[in-house]
Write a protein that binds this DNA or RNA. Structure first.
Lengths: 205, 205
DNA sequence: GGCAAAATGGAATGTCAATTCCAGTTCGTG
DNA sequence: CACGAACTGGAATTGACATTCCATTTTGCC
């Protein structure tokens, strides 16, 4: 956060830095922050100690960069406008498919980081809040659009539904990961989506 | 798991062991497994190295005992029969109140452990599955009772609703913890409960 | 070409934490 | 009460890892 933003990077430098961050993100996703050693990242990325410490003053700064990385990517399963029940259902199906393809191994990129790091420092926590916000954004935007078009029943708060969907995703993935079973993720997404459907005034024809 | 069950414990021994486990549970809840050192636990519990290693062959075994501890306690917010919408709503309110009282600091005792440990070993993962099952049990039992009494609409799966509530709790707590804001937990529990209410045939009068 | 900054190599250091060891005390039971 | 097992104390060991250091190469730019 300090170093990385205040640095004059050459193109080779940026490439190296990016490779380190991407590699760190991957390794951390697999083994967690505490379970990931700088040496692990060095080996995976094929860089030396000096390189890591040239771009990051310490491990916490590398971790911060990884969080930024995920925040920048956003939710990989949320591409287009999520402004209809059908599109939201596609979003749910994507989430489910992703976990199935991963054989239920591993959690959510962001959720795992948040769970491990939320209490470590205010700075990191705020980064995580931002990252979650960037994942929530497409959901919120879509539901707000539906709301603006008057498609949602009176008294329905689109922001609450967006938050509920994100929370459902997080909890569902955690249980699905732990149980190695898609049922929890499917159940909670289905349940929340049923509510979303109930909140729609007129079915989109 | 090996040592603890195959040991002849005197009453003093059991007391010491219990104190170690309870203390470890508390410290781990605050700092995570990786962030908790044996020395931390020793200091907090007022015991010596020998005592810890007398009852647990290594750290992983202590952690296993902590998981058992939480599994044995079950969900602290789920006391009575959860066999009505009102009781389920009380359960939700308890969950929300707990997080508020904690100033949104810290995650779910089980969820945090699961997120950190789910991929460490099959044995631990299975323990976590059991622990989650013991938290899910009251929800499932209550909803099944309602189902058996014919209070749930045709085609409603009580097990799915139980799973959805547990997942909602987990995801809601994670977001609430990260954001230091009750909105996510409230939103997702409210949303899932709305669906539960919609699934009830006749309102309980 | 030449210099300053950037980038890289890789060994050396230092700390922290898990675990081991040896020694002494207390307890349950015959 | 005796004696083996359970329990406790605390120092010593070991290994892993983050971080530092110094030396070398490469790049951007005048």
């Amino acid at each position: 956060m300090t170093k990385s933003t205040t640095r004059n990077l050459t193109s080779r430098g940026r490439a190296t830095r990016d490779r380190i961050v991407e590699t760190a993100a991957r390794v951390i996703m697999a083994r967690g922050v505490a379970g990931t050693t700088i040496q692990d990242v060095m080996a995976e990325a094929g860089v030396s100690t000096s390189q890591v410490y040239h771009y990051f003053s310490d491990k916490s700064e590398l971790v911060a960069a990884v969080i930024e990385f995920h925040a920048g990517l956003g939710d990989p399963g949320a591409p287009a406008d999520l402004d209809s029940v059908e599109k939201l259902e596609t979003w749910c199906r994507n989430a489910i498919r992703t976990q199935v393809e991963r054989d239920f191994i591993g959690g959510c990129e962001l959720g795992s980081l948040a769970s491990e790091l939320a209490e470590t420092s205010e700075g990191v926590r705020m980064q995580l809040v931002q990252a979650f916000a960037s994942w929530e954004a497409p959901l919120r935007r879509g539901l707000r659009a539906m709301h603006a078009r008057g498609e949602l029943r009176e008294g329905t708060d689109p922001d609450d539904l967006a938050l509920a969907l994100l929370a459902a995703l997080q909890g569902g993935i955690l249980l699905t990961q732990t149980r190695r079973d898609i049922a929890p993720l499917r159940a909670v997404l289905t349940t929340v989506m049923a509510r979303v459907r109930d909140s729609v005034v007129a079915p989109t024809l």
